[in-house]
Design a protein around this nucleic acid. Structure first.
Lengths: 187, 187
DNA sequence: CCGTGCATGTAATTCGTTACATGATTCC
DNA sequence: GGAATCATGTAACGAATTACATGCACGG
């Protein structure tokens, strides 16, 4: 058996199906109607991805025959799929992820607390925060060094990056507070 | 001749080569060493992309034989390539772009002033601002509507989106001021 | 002479996108 | 009865990623 790699979309589908078993069409609607718009709601993306997950044994599909002439196939995560999901969520953020796609890191965070618990969410965000601080420092250094030689628009673009990452940092700190407060309320 | 579609990476390469003719390796280094890290610096991405651009007649490569045993191929944008670049930069931001990839919109902005002028940059950002305001309002409405039914982490993720887009908005407004100020200084 | 950096590429694979295609149901 | 929505897919294509591969130049 191959190492069974799972794509970003695959992991996201696992996360959504773990929250609630549903059909491919339901997932498409979620992509179209919620702020998950970053992902395409096209059937050519979702149905093949679901078939790959099923082929890998990570989900199973059962036919809902409420309307026999128009069956829906409802997918749910198998124990093996839950293992893959947990491994995805247990990995800490990497610097390379930060530079490539911050949104993916935030998306992953969203699934951590319900699957691995709030403590794991806080640990994840703490590492996220550490990486962000280092990255912002590097951007500032670049900004200071390149100041004179850079055309205006390039400088503005760089400043956009600094502002964005600073917002991620502030959010991450506040989110850690929210998680800790919610945990305290329970105990 | 096919409709000659150019990918995001292709457009970015055109923009960089328009600023300064350079080799594939130079471009790789730019991706690895500047905040353009979002793009892969792997040769498997850049060299094929350069060959596609050359095949489409958008760039030409000339061999630099300073070291005859280790030639570099320096690429420059052709007039046809400049036309493609201008068309890419002249398009206004779309709502779908906003939801898919804000970073791509900011990246595109960076190349506009040097190619199409500061006025075009301001027009682009004004439309960007309009789209951002609408999108933020939609996110806030979703946030208000889903408030109770949403798990904590989901709410935090949504709040991350609102904070991020608000930062884009603030940046866009400040950038417009910077561009206008720079234009005024010249007249 | 050996490791690191310069400089260019190819191959296999995977994945997403767009567009096309089908049929059922519900609402007016 | 016709339009919009439900629900599922396939086919062609383009493009990125990883890994592999080669050879020169230069510093120690």
């Amino acid at each position: 058996m191959p190492p069974s790699t799972t794509s970003q979309l695959g992991h996201l589908l696992l996360g959504l199906l773990h929250q609630e078993p549903q059909s491919g069409y339901d997932l498409r609607r979620a992509f179209a109607e919620t702020p998950l718009r970053h992902f395409s709601d096209s059937p050519g993306a979702i149905y093949p991805a679901l078939r790959r997950l099923r082929a890998a044994g990570l989900i199973t599909g059962t036919l809902d025959r409420t309307y026999p002439r128009r069956p829906r196939e409802v997918f749910r995560v198998t124990p093996k799929g839950k293992g893959v999901l947990r491994r995805w969520l247990a990995a800490l953020p990497q610097a390379s992820d930060l530079e490539r796609d911050v949104g993916a890191l935030v998306l992953r965070f969203v699934f951590i607390p319900p699957v691995l618990g709030r403590r794991a969410g806080v640990r994840y965000l703490a590492e996220f925060e550490r990486l962000l601080k280092a990255h912002i420092a590097a951007l500032r250094a670049f900004h200071a060094a390149a100041r004179g030689a850079m055309p205006l628009a390039g400088r503005l673009g760089l400043e956009h990056g600094i502002a964005s990452f600073t917002t991620h940092l502030t959010w991450s700190q506040e989110a850690q507070v929210s998680l800790r407060r919610a945990s305290r309320r329970e105990s």
